[in-house]
Computed example of a mutant assay.
Amino acid sequence: MEKLRIWARVTRARTLPVMVAPVVLGAVLAWQEGYSFQWGLFLLTLIGALAAHLGANVVNDVFDFTAGTDAQAQQLQSQGEALVTGSQALFSGSASLAEYRRLWVLLFAVALLCGLILSLWRPWVLVLAGAGFLLAFFYVAPPLRLAYIGRGLGELDIFLSFGLLPLVGAYYVQAGNISVSAILAALPVGLYTTLVLYFHHFLHWRADRQAAKKTPVVLLGEERARQLGAVLLGLTALLIIIDVLLGVFPWYSILAALTVIPVYLVLRRSRGELKQYLALMAQNMSSNLLAVLLLVLALLVRGFTHL
């Protein structure tokens, strides 16, 4: 039981709802547009996506630890200038690098198996899954290390691998094709998910700077990075409104756009204190999931009224 708790922390299993959200929304959107809901294919899609998500979390910790980024954050944490959110099992000795590597290999193997089974019905799944794997792996892994190159590449990576690809992929598995509506629906959801990572950077941006990890906060500084965060929140709401106007979501989905308001209010109060940035991350994740829940419910209501 203790080992399971350790692996739950190592994989950051608490973040799984961030991946569940786009997969469910993509599948429900396909059903609402008239495609029969394939429960077996949906469960395979969900299991594969969740395994890949957990594997990506482990890979991220392995390469951040070996690059010394987390060690820098650990040192600054004692000074109250950073917060280490990954690699804790490595620092405490409760898990080894070899165990980390075996774990991410196992998780990606599960994701690959799900993809292979799904490809019997939906051959393009392997292309979508392969793209997601490469993006998740090379987010911090050499030679690309997109997060370290920075300049928005890391955020674009997260947008694609944790927003666009899972939603569009889940839609494709159900419908057998990819529609413009699926891509449009993925834009605000992907951006909302990207903001989880974006606000996470504030927790350890000084350590990132020392490790030459060029995150937006490192490049812009705290104040301008907060301003950009506010702009991205506004863009998220705007994309939801545009989707409503284009008919992707029903008119009452406009409520989902309002979920950015609590995040913005917490962002305004965040002024350099780590506790405030933790609250900002928590609020963003809660609002993100609430927005997707509202969108899913709206699609279900529209779907059932058209039966």
Rank of each mutant, 00 (worst) to 15 (best):
E2D: 14
T194L: 08
Y100V: 10
L43K: 10
L239S: 11
A136L: 11
L128S: 10
L233H: 15
G55W: 03
L274T: 08
L299M: 02
F63P: 13
L120V: 12
L278D: 08
L239P: 13
L278R: 12
E33K: 12
T15V: 13
L274H: 04
Q283Y: 06
S270T: 15
S253Q: 02
Y252H: 15
W39K: 05
L43A: 15
T305V: 10
L219C: 09
S179Y: 01
G80T: 14
L116T: 11
G303H: 04
L29A: 01
Y264I: 01
G130I: 08
V296I: 13
R5Q: 14
G247Q: 01
H200Q: 13
V20H: 05
L245W: 11
L238A: 15
L274Y: 05
T236V: 00
R206D: 09
L107V: 08
G221A: 10
L118A: 03
L297G: 00
T259Q: 04
P188L: 00
I47W: 07
L76F: 03
L16M: 15
L29H: 00
L54W: 06
L43D: 10
P250S: 02
A207Y: 08
V24W: 02
V263R: 02
T259A: 01
S253Y: 00
Y264C: 02
V296Q: 02
V180G: 06
L300R: 01
W251R: 04
A298L: 01
R12P: 10
A186I: 01
L299H: 02
I261M: 03
A237N: 03
Y139S: 14
L219Y: 04
F199V: 11
T15Q: 12
S87M: 05
L165M: 07
L164C: 01
L265W: 07
W104A: 09
I6S: 10
R226Q: 15
V20C: 10
E223D: 13
I178P: 03
L146N: 05
V10S: 09
V196P: 02
G55N: 08
R12C: 09
E222T: 13
W251C: 00
R101A: 14
P250L: 00
L97V: 11
K275P: 00
V168N: 01
F37K: 11
V231P: 05
L54G: 12
F133P: 12
Y171G: 11
A8M: 15
G68W: 02
R145H: 07
L295P: 08
P262Q: 09
L135V: 14
V110E: 13
G130F: 03
R102K: 13
Q75N: 14
Q77K: 09
V125G: 08
Q276P: 02
G154Q: 05
S286C: 07
V266G: 05
A89F: 04
L195I: 05
L184S: 09
I183Y: 00
N284H: 06
A207D: 14
V266T: 12
V24S: 07
